[in-house]
């Protein structure tokens, strides 16, 4: 356990070195970009001082890392505001979106895959397989466009682009988030169902299942008490991977639905070469991914007594 923690910390440290030096070595001077090419050398020097671009790289790195740990990952070039403050009201938006998508994913795919596996070989099974294969091929952002078109423009269930802030209208916010969350979740539901179905069927062919049957258990008892438990353990890793992928995918979905989450912010920072913002978001994501993987690992150990 402690070894895992240390490994995660080492990885995070390595990522921080890579990120910091990669962005420091990009040609182009942020001070020149901010003040224009006409600026006097003195003004440029002062701006560099202000942006923290003076001094040797390793020292600057240490300053940046210690700032990051204490919750102050620097100041945005384009907004002249602390990155932490800027991110503060954007993160909850993305978190709500991803959380909703994850709930939709689990709520739909678990029962569906059980049903799917129980009907193995029947017509409904084949139809579902076929539909699943089709849905998997739809990129989330095109799914989003189609949902906007169908539910927003034709059926007028929601107003496209009519985002409401969670601060002013929490209910309206959640209602607006439903379709974006669905767009993220749908292709992943297809993938999860496919994997879980295969997993359940694989477990169903194991010896212990035959033993359980021969002891007089009903199919239901075997399915719910034995098979599902074992089938879900490998699915944990898959679900945790889905969670990190959904956080990444929300960058695109936020753009489709006009949601002011971290994704849009990151995108504008990339286009505007606002490196402190990009660095902070990348580091935050790295920490998040490591955290999710570790949590999945711990759950795995708790559920599977063999490890």
């Amino acid at each position: 356990m402690i070894k895992k923690l240390l490994a995660a910390a080492a990885t995070l440290a390595a990522v921080s070195v890579l990120v910091f030096f990669a962005f420091s070595l990009i040609p182009g001077d942020p001070a020149v970009k901010k003040l224009g090419t006409q600026a006097t050398p003195e003004a440029l020097e002062m701006m560099r001082e202000k942006l923290g671009l003076t001094g040797p790289l390793p020292l600057r790195y240490l300053k940046w890392v210690s700032g990051f740990i204490t919750g102050d990952p620097g100041v945005s070039y384009s907004y002249d505001m602390p990155v932490a403050e800027l991110l503060g009201d954007k993160l909850p938006v993305t978190m709500a979106l991803v959380f909703m998508a994850f709930v939709i994913l689990v709520v739909i795919s678990v029962p569906l895959s059980i049903l799917h596996a129980r009907n193995e070989g029947k017509r409904s099974d084949r139809v579902l397989l076929f539909i699943g294969q089709g849905i998997m091929a739809v990129p989330p952002f095109f799914m989003g466009i189609m949902l906007t078109w169908f539910f927003g423009i034709i059926l007028k269930v929601f107003v496209p682009g009519g985002y409401v802030s969670y601060k002013t209208d929490p209910a309206g916010f959640l209602a607006y988030m439903f379709f974006p969350a669905l767009a993220i979740a749908l292709p992943r539901i297809a993938m999860t169902v496919k994997l879980l179905r295969a997993q359940i069927l694989k477990e169903a062919r194991e010896d212990y299942v035959r033993t359980a049957y021969s002891r007089g258990n009903s199919t239901m008892a075997v399915l719910y008490r034995h098979v599902l438990k074992n089938a879900f353990i490998p699915a944990l890793t898959f679900l945790s991977m889905n969670l990190t992928d959904m956080v990444a995918g929300s960058v695109v979905i936020e753009q489709v639905f006009g949601i002011p989450g971290y994704g849009r912010f990151l995108l504008n920072a990339i286009l505007g070469r606002d490196y402190p913002v990009v660095e902070a978001i990348v580091m935050g994501l790295a920490a998040f991914i490591l955290l999710v993987n570790m949590t999945a690992d711990i759950l795995y150990r708790l559920l599977d007594p063999r490890i």
Partner: peptide, 16 residues
Amino acid sequence: TLFAFPSILLALVFVS
């Protein structure tokens, strides 16, 4: 480490 990152995120970083 790189594998843990979704590839779209890696691509975003490299594009930037």
